[in-house]
């Protein structure tokens, strides 16, 4: 559907996007994830033909966006970060202009405008000036514009930024709904949002691709070891000794929690975290020590995200020292 090949974009000396490649398949909702300044907007602007690339290609259904922009752009609906609205027009006038520019005429134009207004639920404000609309409604008008011409792919750049929580939920529902009929790519720096809506994730940091794939696969593949937090009145040394007999423990860190109590963070790479918690419980019981508290902390995408982005930052800054750090913490755990 969309193939991005070795995309690079430089602003003077600054590399906003570096050698980015990925493929978008039809019929999925893609989350384009990255911290602020990672190059999300730049990439989306290039994919939609708003910006040129320094190097690389973007093909939409085989049409190169730079060489056959007319055919390629007909397949895309784009909502930029700031919805490009003419403030002194009504949604109806605005949509009519966009529809005509997309080559729709007469009855077909009317039908499609009615249709997208229905889908984005802006029919009731159709004759009010856009400048008077709330931010949520403005965003919807922007999405309606992207839907005109029935493009195969809808690209939305941070569509929920600056909205209140109820509006955010409404826009998310709308995106989910669109996902049933279109391929949707939307960018965000909020992980929970991407987790809630997307089935595939593209993660970038500092202009580089750090992860790409199914949301569930990504969670499984990149999850940090799950963590069990235990509190006990035994000393740190004896906890270390007790846990010595438990396998699959990759990291162990202690924290003083008031006089006589110690909290230990136990990391594990075992698939089933309950196996480990059972083993810990038995180990403590055998030694006659009490477990005062035991909490299971499952890794989520947030952790994956932070780790991946930090890793890529470390890669960029000091590629050599990066290997040393995990090794140290492992020694700590033994």
């Amino acid at each position: 559907m969309i193939s991005v090949e070795h995309l690079t974009k430089c602003y003077g000396d600054f590399m906003a996007v570096q050698d980015l490649s990925f493929e978008i398949d039809e019929g999925h909702v893609y989350g384009f994830l990255g911290p602020n300044g990672a190059g999300k907007t730049t990439t989306m602007n290039i994919m939609t033909g708003c910006l040129s690339a320094t190097e690389g290609h973007v093909r939409i259904d085989g049409y190169d966006i730079f060489e056959e922009p007319y055919k390629a752009k007909k397949l895309i609906g784009y909502l930029p970060e700031h919805p490009p609205l003419y403030m002194n027009e009504t949604p109806l006038e605005y949509l009519r202009f966009v529809g005509e520019a997309k080559g729709l005429r007469g009855a077909e134009l009317k039908r499609q405008i009615e249709d997208v207004m229905e889908r984005t639920r802006i029919t009731n404000v159709r004759n009010r000036r856009i400048s008077e609309l709330s931010k949520g409604y403005k965003q919807r008008v922007g999405i309606a514009q992207a839907l005109l011409g029935n493009p195969k792919v809808i690209i939305l750049d941070e569509p929920t930024v600056g909205l209140d929580p109820i509006q955010i939920l409404e826009i998310r529902d709308l995106i989910k709904e669109l996902g049933r009929t279109h391929t949707v790519i939307f960018s965000s720096h909020i992980l929970s949002e991407v987790q809630a809506i997307c089935d595939r994730i593209i993660m970038i940091a500092r202009g580089k691709l750090v992860a790409f794939g199914d949301r569930d696969d990504l969670e499984k593949m990149l999850m940090r070891p799950n963590e069990i937090i235990i509190t006990s009145d035994a000393s740190a040394e004896s906890i270390k000794e007790i846990l010595g007999g438990v396998s699959h423990i990759t990291d162990l860190q202690f924290e003083e929690k008031g006089p006589g109590y110690v909290t230990a963070h136990v990391s594990t790479d075992h698939e089933n975290i309950y196996d480990i918690s059972r083993a810990i419980f038995t180990a403590f019981a055998e030694k006659g020590q009490a477990l005062l508290e035991m909490t299971l902390k499952k890794a989520n995408l947030e952790d994956v995200f932070i780790e991946l982005t930090e890793r890529s930052v470390n890669d960029a800054n000091a590629p050599e020292s990066q290997n040393a750090e995990p090794a140290e913490s492992e020694v700590d755990g033994q």
């Binding site: 033909g49 752009k73 930029p80 490009p84 520019a101 080559g103």
Partner: peptide
Amino acid sequence: KQKTDQLLYSLPIS
């Protein structure tokens, strides 16, 4: 100024 030039760039018109 209104950032509507982005719209014009992304529409299938030259």
